[in-house]
Computed example of a mutant assay.
Amino acid sequence: MQNIPHSESELLRRIAAGDEYAYQIIFESYWDAVYSAALLLTKSPGLAEDVAQDVFTMVWEKRTTLPAVEKLDGFLFITARNIIYSRFRKLASGDAYRRYVLERFPEEAAEGADRQAEFRELEQTVLRAIQQLPPQQQKAFKLSRFGGMRHEEIALTMGVSRITIKSYIVQAIASLRKALSNHPSGALAILWGLLFLH
């Protein structure tokens, strides 16, 4: 934190008030540490990247609570750890549920394959939400999720730094979650795929 031009507590107060510049400072200062901690716990670079994005998305979404945080590095590590544990629990319970349905209710599993029209409609809802993002966030998000480009490639394409691209994508995820928070769970399932399976 030696090179940060403001105190940590001041930055947290400013982020709580919606200051995106202060958020960018925290993001750039702590991204590598959060990613490294997630990598240590998950042993997966892809999952660690996703977890780090989740952590900073949550920081922005819950920014009004930040002034109460006494040690930001500890707060970020605990947040990353909780997200990892939550993901593992969901993956485990999801697999168990799918096996249960396939074994005991094969007709329900078959019916699920016939619901493509519903999912196409939900997908359109997600795409409309993406169209509402600020131009730079939208471009970075699309190049990442739809173009399959790595952050380094997007940074070169857009003429900004790799960490700025990460910030754009994290803020895009936060905006999309908020926009779709009241939508039926089907849309959130599609959003999960769009946001995290890369």
Rank of each mutant, 00 (worst) to 15 (best):
F75L: 02
L72K: 11
A92N: 05
A110N: 02
V51I: 11
M58L: 12
V101I: 03
S86N: 05
L47E: 13
S93Q: 10
L41N: 02
E49L: 13
Q124G: 15
L127F: 09
P67C: 01
I83C: 15
A92D: 12
E103N: 15
E121W: 07
A48S: 08
A113E: 10
E121P: 02
P67Y: 00
E153P: 07
L102E: 10
E61R: 15
Q132Y: 02
D114E: 04
Q116W: 06
Q132W: 04
A110L: 11
A48E: 00
L41S: 04
R81P: 01
L127K: 04
A140L: 03
Q124W: 14
S86V: 00
F75P: 07
G74I: 02
E118A: 06
E118M: 07
L122C: 04
Q138M: 10
A68F: 05
L40C: 10
F146T: 09
M58G: 13
E121Y: 08
V59Q: 02
P134A: 07
V101M: 01
T57I: 08
L133T: 02
F56M: 14
Q116R: 15
Y100M: 13
D95S: 07
L102D: 07
S86E: 05
T125R: 13
D73N: 11
E108I: 10
I78H: 13
L102A: 06
D95P: 06
L91G: 10
E153D: 07
G46N: 06
R104L: 14
Q53N: 08
T79N: 03
D54G: 14
I83R: 08
L72F: 00
K43Y: 12
L66F: 03
R128K: 05
T79R: 05
L156C: 15
R128V: 15
F105N: 09
F88Q: 08
Q136K: 07
G46E: 01
R81D: 10
L47H: 10
R63N: 11
A129P: 09
P134K: 11
L39Y: 14
L91E: 11
S144C: 09
Q136V: 05
P67G: 04
G46V: 03
R128W: 09
F88V: 15
D54L: 03
G112A: 12
A92T: 11
A109T: 02
P135G: 01
V55R: 12
A140W: 11
Q136F: 05
D54M: 03
Y97D: 15
P106K: 00
R145M: 10
F146H: 11
E118K: 02
Q53H: 15
A155R: 02
R89K: 08
E118T: 15
G46Q: 15
N82W: 01
E123S: 03
L156T: 04
Q124P: 12
L91I: 09
L76A: 01
P135R: 14
H151E: 05
P135C: 00
P135S: 04
V101C: 00
L91N: 14
T65I: 12
R63D: 06
R104K: 13
Q138D: 14
E108L: 07
D73A: 06
R104W: 00
A129N: 13
F119N: 13
Y85E: 15
F88G: 08
K142W: 14
K43D: 08
E152K: 09
E49G: 11
M149S: 11
L72T: 03
R115F: 10
R99F: 01
I78Q: 13
R145K: 06
R98E: 06
E111Y: 04
I78L: 09
E61Y: 09
R150L: 13
L39H: 11
T65H: 12
